[in-house]
């Protein structure tokens, strides 16, 4: 095996994981980053990788299962007209190569064969422990680009106007679902989050109803969170919601329905109406803190 790994950056954790997974294939592993000075340009970066892979006789090309990693590898696969497996938790060479890959944002796995060459796949986030990358080659974007390869590039970057704790970095996430009942109902969720220095999250039922912005949504098509504790209030625990909380260290669920699926994924349960339980927790925190 001669494997070329696209890395976003030597310090990027998902890129480090991609290199570890590639090493598991055996043989030669070369980690390559692309000089970002001209701006991110997915098709041009993919063309650069294709040329390097061809000149070195690579038998596998891989990338981290990040937004950019998946995007670039899709371009590589389209250019070579070869199959590609996104977000693999394991990969084995051979003819055909076999992979286990993530479906439904992590709620289901698929074993598959890849009938093509070179072997093209991305590694799922956190499927494997990261190790520092000893050697990354940074290469310039190839000059042999078609007009189409040059058509798409980042032309402007707008910094985030963040205020408060971000959902993805928060140590505590207090999240509300349909059980909260209304946009106004979130005041008690906000109050608890604030007392704990945490962030407010929500389910898709809530964003679809227009009670909270989509930026608060946790789940398969929202944010993936990894707090010390995730407090789920009035959330049923649909697989697509749970796909966003797999990184949480602990989960506390508040729900009057003892049969709700959320309890199957919870460490702690409070059976009850969130409109009574949540304010009571806030009051207790104030009491303990003496404020």
């Amino acid at each position: 095996m001669r494997t070329l790994v696209f890395v976003e950056d030597a310090s990027d954790e998902l890129s480090q994981q991609a290199v570890v997974m590639a090493k598991g294939l055996g043989g030669d592993v070369a980690a390559v980053a692309i000089d970002p000075s001209g701006g991110y340009a997915p098709a041009a970066w993919a063309q650069t990788l294709v040329e390097i892979a061809q000149s070195r006789g690579a038998t596998a090309i891989t990338a981290p299962g990040s937004e950019r990693g998946n995007e670039i590898l899709a371009h590589v696969a389209a250019k070579l007209d070869q199959p590609m497996a996104a977000n693999c938790v394991s990969v084995a060479g051979g003819d055909p190569a076999t992979v286990t890959r993530v479906r439904w944002g992590g709620s289901l796995l698929e074993e598959a064969r890849l009938l093509g060459s070179p072997l093209l796949y991305t590694s799922a986030a956190h499927a494997i422990a990261a190790e520092p990358i000893s050697d990354v080659e940074t290469v310039p974007v190839t000059s042999a680009l078609s007009e189409l390869d040059q058509a798409v590039r980042v032309v402007e970057q707008v910094p985030a106007s963040t205020s408060g704790v971000s959902l993805t970095d928060a140590d505590v996430v207090v999240s509300g679902g349909r059980g909260v009942g209304s946009a106004e109902g979130f005041s008690i969720i906000e109050e608890l989050a604030e007392l704990l220095g945490g962030a407010v999250g929500c389910s898709r039922a809530v964003t679809s109803a227009g009670w909270r912005p989509h930026s608060d949504q946790v789940g398969q098509t929202g944010s993936k969170v990894s707090p010390e504790i995730y407090i789920a209030c009035g959330i049923s625990g649909a697989t697509q919601h749970m796909a966003g909380v797999k990184g949480a260290k602990r989960l506390l669920a508040i729900n009057p329905d003892g049969e709700a699926s959320i309890f199957a994924g919870a460490d702690y349960a409070v059976i009850g109406d969130l409109h009574e339980v949540v304010p009571a927790i806030s009051a207790e925190i104030r009491k303990v803190k003496g404020t």
């Binding site: 590609m84 479906r103 289901l108 796995l109 698929e110 074993e111 064969r113 890849l114 409070v270 009574e276």
Partner: peptide, 25 residues
């Protein structure tokens, strides 16, 4: 198919039993 599915597999669940901290307030 060239990305040929062999089978689906349910991921292992932790099977943790939630500790009930109580009812209501």
């Amino acid at each position: 198919a060239r990305l040929a599915m062999v089978r689906l597999v349910l991921p292992e669940t932790s099977n943790k039993q939630a500790e009930v901290l109580g009812h209501g307030a």
